[in-house]
């Protein structure tokens, strides 16, 4: 399968990049690590006229700690770099746990934090070749008006399938977005639309340049549990991130987020309510699992059944809460 024909742009600065985005809005695609984009282009999910390779932009690949503020991760920081960062491991363990589950080591060497945040939503009926999609009828996410997972529906339910945003939600992370008119900062929690087609609230002339982890989130214990068939390579079919702040054994703050099941990653509301002011035990962890499974709305976007995925959100959340509290789950 060949790549569609495109013109390669290689900006050297953020300003230049944003200028290009502004000029070619509907005809341009940003390529960072390319691990997800290149196969998708071969499948003709994207046939941009211009492909903008941003890896030549200086200063976007770094982990910078500013005491009093937190950590800034450049958008081009590779997943491997985050995984290998002792600082992240120590202070933001939930991110460390999530990042090391992404794809496989080789793909993490290329894949970037910015790319993971901007990952396209996935659906078994969408991530297929042009020939395949022709055979089943084009869907609303690409070239058509059918939906094979919610027949008759108007909304796209393709699942948001990146691992790290669930962890970033737990850490109250923010992203820095560059546009022709300057920079703006947006909380991760406000970044996604929960619509499989227009999944992210970034304008066509904007790009993410960095990710901020606030210092106030440092030191939370954390865990990330991922449902997948293979221990490597696979995208999450469900993912649960948990970050806990405890005094002694008593929970002071708790964040739980899920990914891989809905068109956006979601914080689980009321998770704090279920956990705050008490010790984590199997019962409270189960309650949080129940809450998380209510947030999950998996459909037939994957090979596993929606029912199983929702059930696993429940089980994996319970286990992630226990693991974040340092307790072994019992089978």
């Amino acid at each position: 399968m060949s790549l569609p024909t495109f013109k390669l742009l290689r900006p050297r600065t953020v300003e230049e990049a944003v200028g290009m985005l502004h000029r070619y809005q509907d005809e341009i695609q940003i390529c960072a690590g390319g691990t997800d984009l290149i196969p998708s282009m071969k499948q003709r999910l994207f046939s941009p006229k211009y492909l903008m390779d941003i890896r030549g932009i200086e200063g976007l690949e770094r982990i910078r700690v500013t005491p009093g503020l937190g950590v800034e991760l450049g958008a081009l920081t590779t997943l491997t770099a985050v995984e290998d960062s002792g600082f992240i491991h120590k202070h933001y363990p939930v991110l460390h746990e999530a990042v090391k589950t992404v794809a496989s080591p080789i793909l993490r060497n290329m894949g970037t934090m910015g790319g993971n945040i901007c990952l396209d939503t996935r659906c078994l009926w969408y991530n297929q070749s042009l020939q395949w999609r022709k055979s089943c009828g084009f869907c609303i996410k690409k070239d058509g008006d059918l939906c094979h997972v919610a027949p008759g529906g108007k909304k796209c339910w393709a699942a948001f399938s990146a691992d790290t945003p669930a962890a970033l939600l737990c850490l109250s992370a923010e992203v820095n977005i560059a546009s022709p008119s300057g920079f703006r900062r947006v909380a991760i929690a406000d970044l996604y639309t929960n619509d499989g087609v227009n999944r992210i609230k970034i304008a066509k002339n904007e790009m993410i340049t960095s990710i901020y982890l606030p210092e106030s989130s440092a030191g939370y214990s954390g865990a990330y549990k991922k449902l997948r068939i293979r221990g490597s390579i696979d995208y999450p079919l469900a993912g649960v991130a948990v970050a806990l702040k405890r005094k002694g054994n008593i929970v002071e703050d708790a964040k739980v987020a899920i990914t891989g099941v809905n068109p956006a990653p979601h914080l689980v509301p009321d998770a704090l309510h279920a956990l705050a002011g008490r010790e984590v035990n199997e019962h409270s962890a189960m309650v949080v699992g129940e809450l998380a499974s209510r947030v999950a709305k998996p459909l037939t976007t994957s090979l596993l059944t929606p029912e199983y995925r929702r059930e696993m959100v429940r089980v994996f959340t319970k286990r992630a809460v226990m693991a974040a509290a340092g307790a072994e789950f019992s089978i």
């Binding site: 496989s104 078994l124 055979s135 089943c136 293979r230 490597s232 390579i233 696979d234 090979l303």
Partner: peptide, 16 residues
């Protein structure tokens, strides 16, 4: 329709 005609979705075991 074969739903998984890719090495990503046809789950040959990985080393792990």
């Amino acid at each position: 329709l074969l739903m998984n005609p890719t090495m990503l979705e046809y789950k040959s075991p990985s080393s792990t």
